[in-house]
Amino acid sequence: MKLMNLNKDLVKINQNLASSGTKLRIEQRGSRLSLRGPLPCQESPKEFKVQRISLGLPSNQKGLQQAEKLLQLINLQIEHEQFNWERWSKKSPRKFQPKNKVAIEEIIEQFKLEFFDINETIASKASKRSNWNAAYKPYLRRLQEKAISNNCSLNKELFLETLTSYSANSRSRQQCGTALNALANYLKIKLPDNWRKKSYGYGLHKAQFRKLPSDAQIEEAYQLIPNPEWKLVFGLMATYGLRNHEVFFCDISCLKNDGDKILRVFPNTKTGEHQVWPFPPQWINLFDLNQLGENSNTLPKIETDLSQTTLQQVGKRVSEQFRRYNLPLTPYDLRHAWAIRTIHLGLPDTVSARMMGHSVAIHTRTYHHWITRRDQQKAVDAALASITN
């Protein structure tokens, strides 16, 4: 009960600060309180960026009262241009020579503040939070563990050691490369010139080498699902190539009998808003998706409030359900099969990539094998046609 009251008081204080135009906020981190918001940069005091000040105060009512007073003091110092980092921190926010766990944690927290924009909408905050938890946090944690075990500072050698701790040609390695590259840019650490090549694993994605299900096999797997609600989830993913979580974050009113069948994925998803066409369109009837246009409540009842859950948790729920039904394919098999289908049908790569919600570069790397074969086949057909003519 005391913790609940503390949380309510903290929310109320921050709401009052926002109403008064104050940009700093009090936040609770474990058993301690800190301040967060735009603060002067040490190198350029006239410039501001989102940073954190650890107050060292306990997370209780007394600590909260003290934190509020300190916040007011810092606000006054900033207004009168008297704020000095030496008073609030013994180390410069940009002097990164960590030798222990606390120092590294502070660096990553500073980087996290840069990652999140305090002026975002609730929707984009939820999307960024999901992206941080899945694509950044695990790899930064491993970097931190290696720095502590080696008792060394953050440098390009440590970054490289962390990257190569993941299997070559794996998606984890590619994501690790992206996360560490972003942190290196923030810390002004120069990585090896071939960094991108070393973390290029996604270009040799398993999708290129595994046998993806045929359309007939997908239709057979659909029949293995006993629950009609999860059948609709399967049908949507197969027909539109959706990511796991996107099924629950899209406008399905287009599936009404008089709708255009062009699905709009909402902005609060992993890669933002995009539109998708059905491939093949006849699956809309085969998987009985028209009923979704009339009643979206026919989808499974799972938590989709992004203030209570994350996109990863929603996606994980879908994957768990596929395993529960012992389906002979994964959710991403459906997505990859959709992509290959569009390649065989001759849809331009730029259009297909846009529908899938990723860049053309990612699309080309991931589906290079099939795209190359399609283009080669076109060249062969053209050559044969010229001979016959």
Rank of each mutant, 00 (worst) to 15 (best):
M355Y: 09
Y325W: 13
V351C: 12
A353R: 01
Y325C: 10
R341H: 13
G346K: 03
D349E: 14
H344N: 15
T330S: 14
T330N: 06
I343F: 01
Y332L: 11
H358I: 13
R323A: 08
D349I: 10
R335Q: 04
G346M: 05
R335M: 10
H344R: 15
L327S: 10
R323G: 10
P348C: 08
T342W: 00
M356H: 10
R324I: 06
L334T: 01
A337H: 00
P348F: 06
L347P: 05
L327C: 09
R323L: 08
W338A: 08
W338V: 10
R341L: 12
M355D: 07
N326W: 01
P331Y: 00
D333I: 01
G346I: 12
S359K: 02
D349Q: 09
P331K: 00
S359Q: 06
I340S: 06
D349P: 10
L334I: 08
H336S: 14
N326K: 15
I343L: 07
L345I: 02
Y325K: 11
T350R: 12
Y332Q: 13
D333W: 00
Y325N: 14
S359F: 04
I340A: 04
Y332T: 10
I343H: 06
A339R: 00
Y325H: 09
S352V: 07
A337L: 01
H358S: 12
T330L: 07
S352K: 00
R341Q: 14
L327G: 09
D333E: 04
L347Y: 12
I340K: 05
T342Q: 11
P348V: 03
A353I: 13
N326Y: 04
T330R: 09
S352P: 02
L345G: 04
L345P: 00
L334G: 03
W338I: 08
W338M: 05
P328M: 06
G357K: 02
P348L: 06
M355C: 14
Y332N: 11
G346L: 04
D333V: 03
M355L: 08
G357A: 13
P328Y: 04
H336V: 05
H336C: 12
Y332R: 09
Y332G: 10
V351H: 13
G357N: 11
A353L: 08
A337N: 01
R341E: 12
I340Y: 02
I343E: 02
G357Y: 01
R324A: 10
P348M: 08
R335T: 04
T330A: 06
R323Q: 14
S352A: 15
L345H: 02
R324H: 11
V351P: 03
A339L: 03
M356L: 15
T350W: 05
W338N: 10
H344M: 13
A353S: 13
I340E: 07
L327F: 07
L334H: 01
T350K: 11
L327M: 07
G346N: 03
A339P: 01
D349G: 09
L327P: 11
A339C: 14
P328F: 05
L334P: 00
R324W: 04
R335S: 13
R323M: 06
R324F: 09
H358M: 14
R335G: 12
S352Q: 03
P328V: 04
H336I: 06
M355K: 04
L327I: 10
T342M: 12
L327K: 05
Y332D: 10
H336M: 12
G346F: 01
L329I: 02
H336W: 02
H358Y: 14
R341F: 10
S352C: 08
I340T: 13
P331G: 08
V351L: 15
Y325D: 09
L334A: 07
H358N: 15
